[in-house]
């Protein structure tokens, strides 16, 4: 696994050197700019690098080569998910740190809101990869992107419509849950872990059946 993770890191950063410049730059903008959403791009950017490695793997025919080495197919899949989670975590630590620095400068330190920002950024960073990785394993990165857009489009069309159909009730429930911060925080973590686990297992199932 260590070898596979090393390969992921080399491929990610050697092909995306620009991201190493963008991240500190965004962090500085985040500290000195009141518009905090800017900084939320960092975890998204970092976790999306994992999707980039899948394209590079296809181009170099790494998947066939890796299959000739003493590694299980599930390890190859797991290396993607571990990298994705590590990148998202790194991103959310950066978000949390920038948020604290920013609130110290503005004299509005609030650990709860910092934790919430870090958690939100972590969740945000995982949305696209958790949906895309299984699709990429199944259909390849080019077709996987198309299927991702179709599914994302359907979700974006259906979910808001469902919420809006009974918005008052939904808002009341959300506010009630949100007011109980520990419960909300714990539930969010459970949901995030469940989403990662489902995506991970589906990817393993797809990749173990795949002809390379």
């Amino acid at each position: 696994m260590k070898g596979l993770l090393l390969k992921e890191i080399y491929v990610m950063f050697k092909n995306n050197k620009i991201s190493l410049i963008v991240i500190p730059l965004f962090s500085l903008f985040g500290i000195f700019n009141k518009q905090f959403m800017f900084i939320m791009l960092i975890p998204v950017l970092l976790s999306m690098l994992t999707l980039g490695t899948m394209t590079y793997d296809e181009l170099s025919r790494w998947n066939s080569f890796a299959q000739c080495m003493p590694v299980e197919r599930k390890s190859i899949v797991s290396s993607k998910y571990i990298t994705m989670v590590l990148m998202a975590l790194t991103g959310s630590v950066i978000v949390g740190t920038v948020h604290i620095i920013q609130s110290m400068i503005q004299n509005t330190v609030d650990i709860r809101s910092t934790a919430l920002m870090a958690l939100a950024s972590f969740a945000l960073a995982l949305v696209v990869p958790c949906l895309s990785i299984p699709l990429n394993f199944k259909f390849g990165t080019t077709n996987g992107r198309i299927f991702y857009l179709i599914i994302a489009g359907v979700i974006c069309g259906v979910v808001p419509a469902m919420v809006m159909s009974d918005s008052k009730k939904f808002t009341a429930k959300a506010m009630k849950l949100f007011s109980n911060f520990p419960a909300f925080f714990a539930l969010s973590i459970v949901v995030i872990i469940a989403v990662i686990a489902v995506s991970w297992l589906v990817s393993i199932r797809i990749y173990e059946r795949k002809e390379l």
Partner: peptide, 15 residues
């Protein structure tokens, strides 16, 4: 215990 060489080598290009 098996050494393999495929016609397309498969090493990531950036390495």
């Amino acid at each position: 215990d098996i050494g393999v060489v495929l016609d397309e080598v498969g090493i990531p290009q950036a390495l």
